[in-house]
Each structure stands twice: as structure tokens, then as C-alpha cells.
Design a protein around this nucleic acid. Structure first.
Lengths: 239, 239
DNA sequence: CGCGGGGTTGAAAATGATCAAACGGCGTGG
DNA sequence: CCACGCCGTTTGATCATTTTCAACCCCGCG
């Protein structure tokens, strides 16, 4: 992992990352008198950011580039990816579970903007703007987590993979979709194993629902057709 | 479903429900100048409270008695219980997912205190106390949801049921544990089916890890022994 | 006494995991 | 430049787990 420079743009005072999160409305820049310490992080695939310090964690990570994952691991090594994080997504260590080990992991090379607000802890505890923004982050994550629970609990493997492909496609504005993650990562996200994922991808490929240009690139010819085969709506990146 | 009276206690201004949530710190009663409309609801098993109105939902339900569940249903009828709610738990329609159908369902007869803050919407949007309290609710639910994701994704049926029994036991202060829900409810919570749950309960019963007094009552002779068989910590009701 | 709603149990079928082998791309070092 | 080896992927055969379908039991209730 390396640190990368953040150039503050003259007019706006936003780093490249935050121009990005300004788009998705992270809300941390509307705050008054906040001493935000920012730095850019460049993660290689496999790098992890540990969630240190329970309690007052006022540190946020905004994904600029690449794909990262919120992970949980059990004592015996089993791993579950609890959430996938793409460009614009906001992660806070506070958002993660407590008990078992958990961390943010780069599934591909990633650029991340770290925002440290711990200097302003006292102030922020009473700042409606900040509280509203963090609530929005938590609420958005909660909504996604609940959808994922129903996916893991009630969809079979074929449905899970199909939904996954459709959701990744929905995130991509246009052109072919690129998966910035391995089969095993997909498996850990969907509660399957890597071989099963591979097998099912082959079946889907044969069915023609999805056309693969390479193991990591594909095109969805007819999204409606996929939607018809799923008992749940394909959630876009709900703003 | 019936409405039940809430008697405001002279000194405190807290309804019976809210004496309860005062314990668990729901935080809604520390607020200044809030026009809170409260009413008590008595739900029979199977009754549902629908989450109406997206957008500004400022309606909260506090479970006083019994067990309720946050449910999601798919088009084809499959049901997944996304969260179990016991006495003291706080639910807001906002907390639920958006896409598919979802509701709060009484798994047993329940008493619920409904707190409607929509009168104070404008005020609350800027009230740090309120924002902090709702953030706490969302965050707590998020933590639980993420733990549940890893349960559904990576534990086998035996581990899921065992963890479930242990968690229900951890919620019960002392004496035998009573399950206020059917085998099918348990199954819908754990992403299994009712027969599988029943089978596994029988196996656990035979193993002696848990002693059943009746189909809905049991005792855990040695919690540590159960913990030793699980790869995850048994989360208490983490305050 | 019969009925109905859980709950339990069994046998068969389906689903997914595990183990094992082979492939392909890609970077490194000879 | 080529050979080698590594890593991720694919595929097959087999095994384990979970679901499905069905029968039966228990108990409370009309």
C-alpha cells in the first residue's frame, strides 16, 4: 500500500476523490468548520485496511477507483464478503461488525480517499449536517445489507449469480461490464464456492443471457430477460 | 390488531413501552420540544405492519412484548426474515429495504409502542439528539445485519441453528428460554426450511447440547460448550 | 370424536461442495 | 526468445448436505 498525493484544486478545495464523492453526495464537505484531514491511499489487490479503534471512529474511506470489499472472517478461516464497494461508496470502520475480525480489502488495485474527522469529534457530535450525512451512509448500507440477506437466504446459486451479474451491469453506465474481482471473491460475496460460481457462469454463458468477451468482461444483451428470471428487482445504485 | 391505551405516568411522561425503551436508551425522550404522538398496538400472531410511504418516514415502532420480524417477500412467495425484533428493539419503516415487499410481522402476540414524530419533521431534521438516536438505531441494525449475512453465507445448517439457540438464550436473562416462533419462522430467519430445522433440533437435542422441555422451551446446560462448536462469537444484545 | 395446525421423521431427489486434473495467460529467469 | 512455473479458471467425478414429498403424531378445540 502506498500513499498518493492529493492535489487540492484551487477553486473548490476538493481533492480528486472528493470531486467524486461530491457527485454521489457524501455530504462531508458541506460541513462548517470541520478540520478534515485527507490523504490518498493506493492499495494493491489483496491489501487490507483494518478497522482500528472501536468507539469514536470518525474515519471514512471513499472509494475512488477499483473494487473493494467489506470482509468478515471466522476463526477457522472462512471468509464472507459482507459488502462490495465501488467508486463513490463510503465506508466507515464503525459500519463494520464488532465480534469477529473484519476489514476492508482491495479486490483489485484501488485508490481510496481517507477522511479523518477525529480532530473535530466534539464539534461533530452536535453537527446536524454531519449526523445527517452519516445517517444517510449507514441507512444506505443497511438497505443493501438487508437485500443481501434475502439473496443469501432465499435465492439458489443460479439466481444469486444472475442477480450479481445484473447488478454489476446496472452499476456500469455503458459498454461491456468489467469484473474487478476473482471467482473466489464472487463466491465469498454470494456464499458459494469458486468452482460453483465458475460452473454457473458457464451455464449462463451457454444460455445466452450474458455474453463473455473474456473471463472478466461481459455484455448483457437483454436486461429485461434477466429481470424476468429473477424473483427480485435488480436494484440500481439507489441514490 | 387492536389499539391499546397508553397511560402516561405522571412524573416521567413515559408510557409503559417507553419505560422499556428508556432502559435500552432509544433516545427519543431526551428530545426538546418534540410533538410525539404515541399509541399502543396489540398485534396477534401473523399481523403485519406495512411500511408505508417512502421518503420522510418518522414513525418508529418499539417492541414491548413478544417477538416480531422484519420480513421480505419475493414475487413468488418466498419469505426471508431479515431481522428478529424482541422487547426493546426499535424498528423504523425507513430501516427496511425498498424494492421488494417488506413489513413487520408479529411472530407471536405482540405489544408495540408506535411513536409518530412526523409532526416535528422540520424541527428534527436539525436536531442533533434525534439524529444521533436514529443513527444509533441504524448502526445497531447494520451491525446485526452484517453478522447475519456472514451466518447465511458461511455457516452450515447445524451451525446456524446452534447459533440461533445460543443467541436466543443470551437474550433471556435467566431460566428456560422460550421460543415465541414456529419452526417455519426459524427456517425463514436462517435461510433453511422447516423440516431441516426440525431435524437439526432433534440432533442437537440428542447431542445433549440443549435440553428441550417442550417444542418451544429449552435450557442450555453449558453455553461455553456451544461456543466451542461455533466459529463465531455469540453476540449478546450488544448495547 | 373428528379436524386442523404445528411438529417430527423417512425416503428420494436436487443442489452445492470437495477433490482432482487440466488449461491458459503471464511474468520471470535462463 | 523460450521454457518454466504460478495463479486463476474450467471441467469432471464423487460426496455431503439440504430440499422435497409424504406419512404420521400430538394436542387443542369445536
Amino acid at each position: 500500500m502506498n500513499f498518493i498525493p492529493i492535489e487540492t484544486e484551487s477553486g473548490t478545495g476538493l481533492c480528486p476523490a472528493c470531486q467524486n464523492c461530491a457527485l454521489t453526495g457524501c455530504g462531508f464537505h458541506d460541513l462548517d468548520g470541520v478540520a478534515a484531514h485527507q490523504r490518498g491511499l493506493a492499495l494493491d489487490r489483496g491489501d487490507r485496511l483494518e478497522c482500528r479503534g472501536r468507539g469514536a471512529c470518525l474515519q471514512f474511506w471513499v472509494i475512488v477507483d477499483g473494487t473493494a470489499a467489506t470482509c468478515v472472517a471466522f476463526e477457522d478461516g472462512r471468509r464472507q464478503i459482507v459488502g462490495l464497494e465501488g467508486p463513490g461508496d463510503i465506508v466507515c470502520a464503525l459500519m463494520a461488525g464488532s465480534g469477529t475480525q473484519n476489514w476492508l480489502e482491495a479486490l483489485s488495485d484501488c485508490r481510496i480517499c481517507e477522511i479523518d474527522l477525529s480532530q473535530s469529534a466534539g464539534h461533530l457530535r452536535h453537527d446536524p449536517g454531519f449526523l445527517g450525512a452519516t445517517f444517510a451512509v449507514a441507512h444506505r448500507r443497511l438497505t443493501q445489507a438487508q437485500a443481501h440477506i434475502s439473496t443469501l437466504g432465499r435465492l439458489d446459486s443460479r439466481e444469486r449469480v444472475l442477480l450479481f451479474l445484473a447488478q454489476m451491469a446496472a452499476r456500469t453506465s455503458k459498454g461491456p461490464v468489467t469484473l474487478h474481482m476473482s471467482r473466489e471473491d464472487i463466491a465469498d460475496y454470494l456464499g458459494l464456492n469458486a468452482e460453483t460460481v465458475s460452473r454457473i457462469l458457464s451455464r449462463i454463458k451457454k444460455s445466452g443471457l450474458v455474453k463473455f468477451l473474456s473471463p472478466t468482461e461481459y455484455v448483457v444483451p437483454d436486461m429485461a430477460e434477466i429481470a424476468r428470471r429473477l424473483p427480485v428487482p435488480i436494484e440500481e445504485t439507489h441514490a
